[in-house]
Structure formats: C-alpha cells, structure tokens
Amino acid sequence: MDIVAHGLYTAAAAIFVNRRLAAPVRLGWAVFFGVFPDLASFTVPAVLRIWWRLTGATTTLLPQPGGPRLDWVFGLYNCVHSLLIFVLVFVAAWIIARRPVWELLGWLLHIAVDIVTHRGWFAIQPLWPVSSVHLDGIPWETPWLLAATYAFLVAIFFALWRTRPQPFHQGTAHRQSL
C-alpha cells in the first residue's frame, strides 16, 4: 500500500476507535505509526539519493548499475514490516508506559495491509527474522486495486462523517419544547 493510503486507513481506524472507547487514541501518533514502516525504510535512502544528485555523485535519483548500493535498506525494511518485531516493540512500550500504547496499532495495521498488497522484493516477511516465508500479494499499484483502495477510503470517511457525533444545543431542545 502507498504511504498516503496507510496514513488515511490509520486515521479512519483511530477516529472509529475514539468514538467507541473511553481511552482515546491520539490521532497524530496513530497516523505516524501507521506510516512509520515506510518512513523508516525509505527516508534515509531518499535523502541520500537527493544529496548524491545535488552533489553530482549521480545523475539520477534512480538506482544505477555500478552506482551506490543501499542493500542494508532491505534488512531495515524486513525489520519494520515484521509482526514479531512489532509484538516485541508493543510489549516493551506497554511495560515502559505501564499501559497499552494503542497508537502503535497503526504499525500493525500497516503490516497487515502490506502482507496482501506486496510481492517480489517488497513481499512482507511477517515472521522475520525467524522465517522468510511470505505471501506474494496483489501489488498495491495495480490500477484496479489502487482505484478500489481510494474508493473504499472515500466510503469510509463519508461513513465517518455521516455518523459523527452531533453537538448538543441546549437552546434547540428548549425551543422545541415551547
């Protein structure tokens, strides 16, 4: 899934949960953790490629045969897309905060969506580093899936908007009783 869709799905989930639970989920942090795996994996390589382009070390932002290699990115990618690593971080955060840090579930949602929407080099290995087992899902950039993703997001946010809590106006209730 693309990073924008991850952020939107996480925001929708956090808004829904906040309407149902007494302990609120901080929307900004939930969205941050919803996009965290991609930020952690791709921010440093993107900044390096831009720097190399600006300084003339390369003529393109794209990888080139014989050009600088960033193989370590795949290890980081596997790490932040691993259910096992997520569980370890979630438990550690719970112990440190002395409460579940629900905002971290945005990270879990990210992994779950990516398992079925990635393939090839970017196929998610949910049990990494114990196992390299993965599912070759439907690539998120497949036109019909991309269109369905954003259509579904529009539907979700429309439903959230339609079901939003309405403010209570005391004056309205009083006028109706007169």
Results as ranks from 00 to 15, higher is better:
R99C: 02
I85F: 07
S82Y: 02
L70V: 10
R49P: 07
A97N: 07
A46L: 14
I156A: 11
A159N: 14
A112K: 02
G120C: 04
A112T: 08
Q125M: 13
V130C: 09
S131D: 09
V25M: 09
F122S: 12
V17W: 09
F42S: 08
V91W: 06
A123G: 05
W94R: 03
V154P: 06
Y9T: 09
F168H: 13
D71V: 06
P24K: 15
L54T: 14
M1P: 05
H6F: 06
T60V: 08
S41D: 03
T59R: 11
W94N: 00
A155I: 05
H110A: 10
V4I: 15
I50Q: 14
H110N: 13
I96M: 09
R20I: 12
G67C: 12
F157V: 00
P37Q: 04
L8K: 05
R98C: 08
V4S: 12
V113K: 01
L39G: 00
L108A: 14
P37A: 07
H118D: 14
G120M: 02
V31M: 12
L153Q: 02
Q64C: 09
P129E: 09
A40R: 07
D136M: 01
R162W: 07
I115R: 07
L8V: 08
P100M: 06
I111R: 01
L104W: 00
H134A: 14
V87P: 00
V116D: 05
A46Y: 15
L146T: 01
F16L: 09
L109K: 00
L104H: 03
A92D: 07
V113M: 10
A14Q: 09
T172F: 15
R175K: 10
A112G: 10
L146R: 03
T55H: 12
R53C: 14
W102D: 00
T55K: 10
G171N: 05
A112V: 13
L127S: 13
T58E: 11
R164K: 09
A148R: 06
V4Q: 14
T58I: 10
P100G: 04
S82T: 05
I138Y: 07
A112N: 05
P65M: 15
N78C: 09
A5L: 11
W161K: 02
A40S: 08
Q166A: 15
I50P: 08
W51V: 15
W29S: 11
A40T: 08
L145A: 00
D38R: 01
T172K: 12
F74P: 06
A13V: 11
A151F: 07
C79P: 04
F32P: 11
R119N: 12
L61V: 15
Q170N: 08
G75T: 04
W72E: 00
R164W: 12
F32K: 10
I15K: 08
I3A: 07
D136F: 02
V80T: 08
D114C: 11
Y77I: 05
L108C: 10
R69V: 11
G120R: 03
L127T: 12
A5R: 08
S132E: 13
W107Y: 02
H169F: 09
L146I: 02
G171E: 10
F32S: 12
R49W: 08
S82F: 04
R20T: 13
E103Q: 00
